[in-house]
């Protein structure tokens, strides 16, 4: 039986869920440096579904593809520690300023350059943009059908897949032929933790750039253990039209950014005494806010 080829699309994102006091500067703007960079949460849900398919289908492989700056290799290592087979970092200055459409185009070109896939699985959306657009747009660029908001891959063969997906008001089960792109919802099973053996095996997995920046102590390691090489891909490797990448390839432009600053208005401050609460309730009742 031919092995199933699975590509997981993942993104390194600033952890916007934990925006604490120090994450906002005095002028009310976001202090990006104070936010840790993490594996986009729903992409981890996606990785878990991919690994479950791999567990079921002999010879299936899971590759992680991420587009981002050099340090995004961190999430590829994270994926390797959890069970992915290999990873590809798509990085190039030409991608800077990409909106979702230009991002999708670059990812689709990279997937083609990697020889395509039977299943492409990604998170529903990334927490820094919350757009949920890249998955469906990659599918469209590759001419593949899509199943979004997936909660569980129920059945999979080398030819078809059956998936339970979330709706606004319920769930449904859908089935379709491979190749297919699936986006996974945050309500799906969490990703399995790092595996101690894989952590040892892949702890020195690096990209070429990272290897050049590091000391040469382990240089022979990368000859003997080719799986430690995280492949870096740039524009020249993916046969993409330059005008469809980055800022020029992005139909949407940001006209204006406003930082959210709370407007202060006069609030009446009350202590929790019985008299205060009773007074407030009487006031709300008398002006018909309550009752």
């Amino acid at each position: 039986m031919k092995g199933l080829k699975i590509i997981v699309l993942a993104k390194q994102v600033p952890d916007t869920r934990n925006v604490g006091k120090d994450a906002m500067k005095a002028d009310g703007t976001v202090n990006r440096a104070a936010l840790p960079a993490i594996f986009n949460p729903e992409d981890l849900n996606a990785l878990e579904q991919a690994l479950r398919v791999k567990d079921q289908i002999p010879g299936a492989t899971v590759s992680i593809l991420t587009m981002g700056p050099g340090r995004a290799a961190e999430i590829i290592r994270e994926g390797l520690f959890r069970g992915a087979d290999n990873g590809y970092l798509l990085t190039d200055r030409a991608f800077a300023g990409s909106d979702t459409l230009a991002t999708s185009y670059a990812l689709a070109c990279a997937i083609k350059a990697l020889g395509g896939a039977d299943l492409i699985i990604c998170g529903r959306q990334a927490i820094d943009g919350d757009t949920a657009q890249v998955g469906p747009q990659v599918a469209e660029k590759l001419g593949l059908p899509q199943i979004t908001y997936a909660e569980e891959v129920l059945e999979v063969t080398t030819k078809s897949v059956k998936v339970r997906r979330r709706l606004d008001n319920g769930v449904e089960t859908v089935e379709g032929a491979l190749p297919m792109l699936i986006t996974v919802n945050g309500s799906a099973a969490p990703c399995r933790p790092r595996n101690a053996y894989l952590l040892q095996k892949y702890k020195r997995a690096v990209t070429v750039t990272e290897r050049q920046e590091a000391s040469n102590d382990y240089i022979e390691l990368y000859h003997d253990r080719p799986y430690l090489n995280i492949v870096e891909m740039g524009v020249k490797d993916i046969d993409a039209r330059l005008e469809d990448l980055g800022l020029p390839g992005s139909p949407t432009k940001v006209k204006k950014i406003e930082n959210v600053v709370f407007q202060t208005k006069e609030a009446k401050i009350l202590g929790p005494s019985d008299a205060n609460i009773e007074g407030l309730m009487i006031e709300l009742l008398s002006n018909h806010t309550l009752g």
Binding site: D99, T100, L101, S104, G129, D130, T131, A132, Q133, V134, G135, P136, Q137, A139, E140, K141, Q146, T148, Y149, R166, L167, D168, S250, P251, T252
Partner: peptide, 23 residues
């Protein structure tokens, strides 16, 4: 910006190469 709109919108925008802003 429902499950349907967020499934359909990006697909249509990609096919037409037009910009889409979510939510």
């Amino acid at each position: 910006a429902t499950v349907i709109g967020r499934d359909l919108g990006p697909r249509v925008s990609s096919a037409l190469h037009s910009g889409l802003t979510a939510d």
